[in-house]
Design a protein around this nucleic acid. Sequence first.
DNA 1: CGAAGCGACGTAACCGGTTACATAGCCTTC
DNA 2: GAAGGCTATGTAACCGGTTACGTCGCTTCG
Lengths: 339, 339
Amino acid sequence: MGEPTIRDVARRASVSVASVSRALNGLENVRSETRDRIMAAVTELGYVPNAAARSLSLSRAHAIGVVLPDLHGEFFSECVRGMDREASRRGYLLLLSNMHDDSEQSAMALRAMRGRVDGLLVMAPHIAPASLERALPQALPAVLINAPGEVTSRPGLRIDNRAGVDAMVRHLLDSGYRNIVHVAGPDGNVDAQERAGAFRDAMQRLAPDLPARIMAGDFTEEGGAAAAQEILEGDAPIDAVFAANDMMAIGCLHALRAGGKRVPEDIGVTGFDDVPLARYLDLTTMRVRIADIGARAVARLVDMLDGQGPGDGTELQAPELMARSTTMPRAASSAVPRA
Amino acid sequence: MGEPTIRDVARRASVSVASVSRALNGLENVRSETRDRIMAAVTELGYVPNAAARSLSLSRAHAIGVVLPDLHGEFFSECVRGMDREASRRGYLLLLSNMHDDSEQSAMALRAMRGRVDGLLVMAPHIAPASLERALPQALPAVLINAPGEVTSRPGLRIDNRAGVDAMVRHLLDSGYRNIVHVAGPDGNVDAQERAGAFRDAMQRLAPDLPARIMAGDFTEEGGAAAAQEILEGDAPIDAVFAANDMMAIGCLHALRAGGKRVPEDIGVTGFDDVPLARYLDLTTMRVRIADIGARAVARLVDMLDGQGPGDGTELQAPELMARSTTMPRAASSAVPRA
DNA sequence: CGAAGCGACGTAACCGGTTACATAGCCTTC
DNA sequence: GAAGGCTATGTAACCGGTTACGTCGCTTCG
């Protein structure tokens, strides 16, 4: 009545279940005539192996658990797209579960994956590493995405914020901007902190004579606009705003233009992330290839599962400068010494 | 060595595996003292039931397979977000697989889900219903999302394009626009066809005296701009453009303004979908709650699985008018008779 | 010619749960 | 006080695969 099982196939092909299993898994020690009979039976019955039974006896599910926070649109889909691409290339399926803020429920979701997946991909930007480590089944290999710092023993994958900020600061200096202010993200956010710190360092290193101003922000468009207001009303001779993300850069851009500034002539504006809107507004920014991060995370995890060693530590994904029309080479430009 | 099994728990609590299973599944016939001993053993050992074993013996996986095409960002993530929300409320996990254009590989992905999922959520806008029906395991319940027409016997979920177009046409007429042109989407797309057809019908019904012009388009920004050029250069007295999606509306909006037209005074522009960019540009459009569609799809599927009957046929999700600043009530306005 | 070796194949145990059925202990009831 | 019923619990079969091990027949070689 139900779906055909391997025993049905065996009966139909007049062989034992062992032979069917061997034939299906491409083992060598099956006579080709036998194999043909088995394959015929398989197609006649429309047999498909039951994955649950397979996982149970192999203790291998060929599936990867993906636990993501409630991400904003583009980021989420790009990440999953990259994961799916790599996973399906490698013959794995993705088991998805949003990690809700409720850590109780997240723990539930994690347990529910027990026995279903061979490894975990976890993005938990706002979870303390210690409690994360506790929630993670210690038996399961896991790759952490954008986890805060090196605090964990798990292999990880992160945006190379330092390299990105470096490239952007260099671009601004090369273009001739001299009075650069960084609008930082919220305190709680790891990327925000890292970008702000990197900005300070980059300025110190690349242009020690110039001031490295940092303003507070919150990653929102309104926050960017507020920063712009402050700049318009202040008396500091700012000629470039480097926002810690694109949304703030966009808020900034509008407010500055509304305030009578010409961008990029009077003042340059740049962001970070390269959201679709940035491309649309022709905003200079750092492109973060999120899909690649997802794909690499899968690749590393599968390598671990196949015993290729744990890979070492945290891998960084370098963003790419997208120089567009909110910055321009300026008259007063002077070369910056290469590091 | 490996993870503890139910037998380990049974041994530790000095009971049989049957009692452990009963206690864990909340069966009534377990003495509370016994239950406590079992629970203690569970937490001491850190026992988590193996899902594969569970699915095998119950033939119930508590997971839902999700097969989506390679969707564009926002749509994908919204849809999955809605699904995940509802699925986790109902105690289900999501098994994800992008359906690549390669139908061979898609079939593979579908078989790989055999035994892993209790049902399928399939979005296949560009697959012929017949071949889809063939690829789908006939034993698995499935809910089709945005499937073309009623051609299939499976329950489905679709955007109510007719209602949406109706509402928009009514809004334009109410606002006083009289010479409305619809910029259609690509021929192959079901939504595009439906919207164009609905536009013709709505105009016929709500304003039989007015012309119902339709121009060809392709759902891209460039396509919208091209249509706008044609309007600018033509001599028809167009005073409103209703694009079949937001991206075309945006292309149109820019081209019209670049061509010297004032929007919304000289000409109204509207779209469909309410992508984030539309909100940003303050474009009048129809909001499609994609997340709700995903959530409803899960809800219906789970109802089917729980034997609540198959639900009947295709359910429609009504879009919502977002009247923003690319349309406005005009002087020459005259009321339109309500249907 | 018999033993050893080898390749193809079958038998049955196992993976880790669930559950039908058996059993045992206790309480009722006449 | 024995029979019957009820409840808590144990035993073992089963879900559908994989695979260690055994069997069988044939070839090869001393």
